[in-house]
Design a protein around this nucleic acid. Structure first.
Lengths: 197, 197, 197, 197
DNA sequence: AATGAATGAGCCTTCATTCAT
DNA sequence: CATGAATGAAGGCTCATTCAT
């Protein structure tokens, strides 16, 4: 359907050029229609942008929550590691969507600045509570040091952010190496090693 | 001097809107001149952009190297921590410059994409070698685990990137808390704790 | 009936914005249909316009003739005054229609300019002959000075036009005061006052 | 100078098509420049419009006041008649300006509605006080009936409005005839004829 | 009778840039 | 140095209209 094709093309264009740098003409041409036809489906450039933005936000949140909650099988290290891997995987697989979301989050167009802050806060809260669950379980099971949960979450999010940023300027292999090493020391930092001594 | 004022205003404008989103008219008006006057100093928008970009890149590299090398006094933890703190400090103090550089690095305008990659690689190499020095010294002194240097550097850079990204969406306090906790576990992960057991 | 609703909404829109300023989308939305549906009833914007225009012209002419002819009861002053009052009343009651007609008459869209002149002339002739009847009767009965009929009609039409124009920028009260005073001196000017001396 | 030519062409275009009906392309082409060049002189279509509007308003007011005040030579009838004649003359001579002003006054674009009302009121007050002077002098000299001044002014303005409106649909000759007859009875209505009996 | 999809034409406006002064 | 004037290119958007369904 045309509407879907427009959204797809617009996503790519927004990701490449940002809100200002994207042109409806470019999108229309990619879809194979004329610029004004876009207005049959979206009432403005902003509307098109917001539609994509909200859909992506939902998809992204769903993805994350799913990855954090679904598997209660394995040990704490595996679970946490899976969270990171899932994120990296998503970002490597859906590079365009990641670029779009990152761009918007870091450099939102003026009209978005307000909505952004609140959305972002809500989003982070969701993730945090998912993580809290994993960490507290890990502590109970003796895998993870008994430290304040929010401290553990803070440090985990920092790791996540670091790897996420590297998505942008490392290629897949370098990224995986980086992840491997970062994780190694991170896990050493939070895991319960008293048993070993 | 007018030229300097133009660069200053342009920096702000580029940081706010990116290459596409910044307009020469806006800059001129901020400086208090008319748009064509800019062409007395820069031969094009791109030229203006590149000038700022290169100057900032140099300044930034100098800053980083300096922060990594200068102090050979204190212990390993203090030195590494200072590196992070210096970076955070710089980014908080020079928000505009940071925004500009980040934007360019993550979402470079088309004509920059090529130059970018190489510049970035060189920059990173510089930092890595500075860090290698710190880490190897730390290992020698028994503060840090005797692990492959590049692995330690990888994990440190990941921490750095994570905190850097958080610069964008955390306020100063939240950021400091995050840093505190991230660092705590990070240091636990790399420091030599066999002595304690 | 949809067709009628379209005409009604279009009338309002044309009155508000003139031919160029009115948009079919606006009308469709007011009616609660989609723009292309209008084409099921009118073959073009111009057609819609002309339909309304002609209907209004007929209605208006009928109104005027009726007001001028109906009452043969009262004296000359009362009859003439009633003509003015009827016109003012109509214009105050049917403001939208008045605006539409006035706009078209004073500033017709290009394609109407020709038809306009002839229509207008015919219309005026109709009114003039109605007025001639009143004036000649008034002269016969000694109420009005024995002056050339067309002169009396000219002056009456000028009064009518003046009050009509004031419809647009005076509110009801101011307009009534203006009418009261204008009429007072007008009647003094045409009535037969020799008897009083 | 180009700016003046733009204003001239725009005046014509606005008069012909109203605010919505006028296009900057049309104006530019009339002046012999490209559309964006207009923006070197006026910051928007609205700005161009307002500039013309205010200038015309001033010119018009000046014209009227001048005509009403200057000549204190002749008798009351001559003075009042001159006011009407001057107005008619102005409107016949400057048809475009008249069309522009009338259009704006009767059917102002949305953004003007507010300013309009107040401007109009001020304008009318100016005219009224000029007329009061003439009428009171006329009464003192016994030319005009001793009636309340504001009543006389009301009736005079009504005459003026009537003739003004006729400017739009009568040609010069018809208009002059109409003026001649309207004035004849009007003057009979307000002049002091007791002396004649 | 109504509409979803599409479009050509046109509108106002911004922008980077040039050039003569 | 600085600017006034001008412009080609492009951008977002609206509009009347068509056509298949």
């Amino acid at each position: 359907m045309t509407k879907e094709k427009i959204k797809q093309a617009a996503l790519v264009a927004f990701a490449k050029g940002g809100y200002e740098g994207m042109s409806l003409a470019e999108v229309a041409s990619a879809v194979g229609i004329k610029t004004p036809s876009i207005y049959a489906f979206f009432k403005s450039k902003q509307d098109l942008f917001m539609t994509i933005y909200h859909e992506l936000l939902d998809e992204h949140a769903a993805q994350l929550v799913q990855q954090t909650n679904v598997m209660e099988i394995e040990g704490s290290e595996q679970r946490l590691r899976k969270v990171v891997e899932a994120m990296l995987d998503y970002h490597l697989r859906e590079q365009t969507k990641t670029e779009f979301l990152t761009r918007v989050n870091l450099f939102p167009p003026d009209f978005l600045k307000d909505e952004m802050r609140s959305r972002f806060a809500a989003n982070e809260q969701q993730i945090r509570s998912s993580l809290v669950a994993i960490f507290s379980e890990g502590i109970e099971q003796g895998d993870i040091q008994s430290e304040p949960l929010h401290e553990l979450v803070d440090s985990f999010l920092c790791l996540l952010d670091g790897l996420f940023l590297q998505t942008f300027y490392y290629n897949k292999e370098t990224l995986e190496t980086s992840f491997f090493h970062a994780w190694k020391f991170y896990w050493q930092g939070i895991s319960n090693r008293t048993a070993n001594c």
